[in-house]
Amino acid sequence: MRFLSLVSQHRVVIILGLTLVISALLVPGYLSASTLGLGLDRAATIGLIAVGLTVLLISGQIDLSGGAVFALAGIVSVILQREIGILPAAIVGILVGTLAGAINGMLVVGLKVNSLVLTLATMLIFRSLAHWITNSQPVTGTDIMLSLALAKIYLDVFTLRSVLFIALIVLLHFWLTRTIPGRNVFAVGSNPAAAKESGIASDRIVFLGFVFAGTLAGLAGVLQSLVTNTGSPVFGSELTVAVIAAVVVGGTRLEGGKGSALGTLGGVLTIGSLTIAMEFQSVPAYVQQVVSGLILILLVVLDRAVTTKGRASGTRPALVRDNPITQGGTT
């Protein structure tokens, strides 16, 4: 039990460590700077969206539309390059993500509907919009050189994207642990009724959570399009699952109230290094998905084993309620 809870507490580190060790044993040259850099860059795309999703999941919501927003924002930023220039187009692309998040948030808060179902619906809509705008064809940008500049590797390891991701993780960590709104996000996700009764503006927090998540999905999509000089309606179609997997591996609870930025960092790196390792070994994509799925199952089982045992041996409420003296004595 103690052992299990220790394992559970540090599970991200353990899983990440295991992934790296096993990969290093199986894949020659895995622990080189260039491989790590590649893995980190790959992880950063998942990671940017995961940062937004971490906040949303802690607040008790979920956003399935991230992958679709990713594609749509990228397409907009590429198409508009000819009209208004690269930088303004990129900004508009990110704002498309913000707008999509605002729509999600408004609908969830305003209509008081389940965010799982609602963002499933908006996911279909955003994805279809992306196909509609592009006639289901990839679109290309104006400046190939830019994509080379953006893909440049600094200090043998870092790309622009991965630096941005790590910076955001640090900020998120600080925000979640040290600021009042950050703590309130946990309150809203852990016990919405108590949060509301205590005067916390839960609706606003949830709405802003969606806006934040949408903006980051937009940012990730725009960066992807700039790096590849392409906007495609099929971009990011398997991203949502990878992102949710990464955040959950990082110890964030799907029901809300629990999670951390550093956990998400660990989860994202795990998914990233796993992907890279399997790609190096030419493991087919479908097998990769099987492995990710198995890892998720393992985690859920581990979580359950720890929590149920904890409940059985912890202080049961019944023990402390019994009190004949105060209840039964005569006056």
């Binding site: 600021t179 009042i180 709104p181 703590r183 309130n184 205590s198």
Partner: peptide
């Protein structure tokens, strides 16, 4: 202090 945590600006 739920709902009224002490802080300066936004910082707890």
């Amino acid at each position: 202090y739920l709902g009224r945590m002490p802080g300066k600006w936004t910082f707890l």
